[in-house]
Write a protein that binds this DNA or RNA. Structure first.
Length: 455
RNA sequence: GUGCCUCUAGCUCAAUGGCAGAGCGCUGGUCUGUGGAACCAGUGGUUGCGGGUUCGAAUCCCGUGAGGCACCCCA
């Protein structure tokens, strides 16, 4: 087709801003990570669900605050309905629970892994379509549910070998108490949270300036800074907070909940190096009402790997009656970024485990018989489909794709009733009896990767 | 959404406003019973895209698309 002809029938093969194609190798790594997450989620008793990518705009509107609203994909469908692409998996969950209330067993524990959409300006680790891996428990106020979310995160991230993650913990009501102490009206509280949240980045002086700029008085700002900078073991820090904010019932409630949360974490055997109380942590989303978490990693400067929190009021927006819930999401692309940058996981470069070579035009029957036998025996096997098939080319094909085993069955092997198996990594060759082929192939595969031993 | 930077072959990068190049890769061969190595030969481009300035633009200007950095926000 000429360039002109092509221009008439299609545009350049470009994807939309902030959206990406994935090559097989990238998909294999992504799948590997998702599979490991699923295994951890299920080990804790979370069950899979799915919901549509597209929701009525009304379902999504008014849940994320002004900032979130601006980033939502929103348009009319063919029937003139106002619709939106889901912005996260939490609001769809709230809608899901309200819709299927009578079909669910509570407390309801679910995980949900899939793409969400935000019309942001893309950057590294920040895309317009990205996958979230959510874990939530609906229908209980118990801090044990929150503790489980934190623990499931720690284990999920450990399962993909991410080292040194520290999940930061804070409580939304503690932030509210701080804001009201600072004399900031409720509708301005969010700006105070954000100022506080920047502590790590701009330092106490920067936060002080920002607070003053938002009309906080000098002594109030000092009070806030004094609290927010408390560091150390959760127990003593919470005791200190309890003392300083003694008169504030909201703060006392938050402290009591956090104490309970940390107690459960201890009982569950969570590694204390993997979580920390951070009174400066904010979390921007509007719907949080209780404990909030954020998983941060230092090494690739990629922001947070995930955010979580309790949102006891969100489901009530669909039901008129509150159902408590807690949970959070890990960002798949950020996890992938860390795993790639630090080379933490070695995903296979191809799914194929064995290539059966074709010796000549007369031996198709032999090759196809072998490949079918391997497939029936649970081995991912292919026969070379190219038209020019000298052995050199066939072995090269296997080498480039990273297929570990290449099988030969030419006249010599036929006469002897054997098959030659070549291990590409070492170049080692084995002549095995035709009858033992599948078991020998599986033995060799298991020897190079213990995880593929079963099935 | 705002500001700044970048975009040249499949990849990494060269080229004072004056002939668009190298390395790697890829293709073929040495080599039709076996991949990587070596050697030989070949293949590579609307310089992101569209306009403008100029005798002449990869280079300067405007617009636009994409990527990146900071802000904002967030997974």
């Amino acid at each position: 087709m000429t360039r002109e002809a092509r221009a008439e029938t299609s545009r350049s093969p470009q994807v939309l801003r902030g959206m990406r194609d994935f090559l097989p190798q990238q998909m294999l790594l992504r799948q590997e990570i998702v599979d490991r997450f699923k295994a951890v989620f299920e080990r804790f008793g979370f069950e899979p669900i799915d919901t549509p990518l597209l929701e009525y705009y009304e379902v999504l509107a008014g849940k994320y605050g002004e900032e979130g609203e601006k980033l939502m994909y929103h348009f009319q469908d063919h029937g003139g309905r106002e619709v939106g692409l889901r912005y996260d998996l939490t609001v769809p969950l709230a809608r899901f629970v309200a819709a299927h209330r009578h079909e669910l067993t509570f407390p309801f524990k679910r995980y949900h892994i899939g793409p969400v959409f935000r019309a942001e300006r893309p950057q590294r680790g920040r895309y317009r379509q990205f996958w979230q891996c959510d874990v939530d428990t609906v229908g209980t106020r118990s801090m044990l549910a929150d503790a489980e979310v934190l623990l499931v995160w720690i284990e999920a991230l450990a399962s993909v070998n991410i080292p040194n993650v520290v999940v930061q913990v804070n409580h939304r009501k503690l932030l509210q108490a701080l804001a009201s102490h600072a004399g900031v009206p409720a509708e301005q509280a969010l700006t105070v949270y954000r100022a506080i949240d920047k502590l790590e980045k701009i330092g106490p002086e920067g936060v002080r300036e920002e607070l003053l700029r938002h009309g906080v008085s000098e002594p109030a700002a000092q009070g806030v800074l004094g609290l927010v900078q408390l560091r150390g073991e959760p127990g003593p820090v919470l005791a200190e907070v309890r003392q300083r904010l003694a008169g504030d019932p909201q703060a006392m409630e938050a402290v009591a909940e956090l104490e309970e949360l940390f107690r459960y974490l201890g009982l569950l055997g969570a590694d204390p190096r993997r979580y920390a109380l951070n009174l400066a942590l904010a979390r921007g989303l509007d719907y949080y009402t209780g404990p909030v978490f954020e998983a941060v990693v230092e090494e690739p400067a990629i922001g947070s790997l995930g955010g979580a929190g309790r949102y006891d009021g969100l489901i009530g927006m669909f039901l008129g009656e509150d159902i408590p819930a807690t949970g959070g999401s890990l960002g798949l692309e950020r996890v992938v970024e860390v795993v790639q940058e630090l080379q933490l996981l070695h995903a296979p470069s191809t799914v194929t485990q064995a290539l059966v070579t074709v010796f000549d035009d007369e031996s198709w029957g032999v090759a196809l018989g072998l490949v079918q036998e391997l497939r029936a025996g649970g081995v991912a096997a292919e026969v070379y489909l190219g038209e020019r098939r000298d052995l050199r080319r066939q072995v090269q094909y296997a080498d480039r794709k990273g297929v570990p085993l290449v099988l030969f069955c030419g006249p010599d092997e036929l006469a002897a009733g054997v098959v030659t198996i070549r291990e590409l990594a070492s170049g080692e060759q084995h002549r095995v009896a035709r009858a033992d082929l599948v078991s020998e192939v599986r033995r060799l595969l298991a020897a190079r990767d213990p995880r593929s031993a079963s099935t």
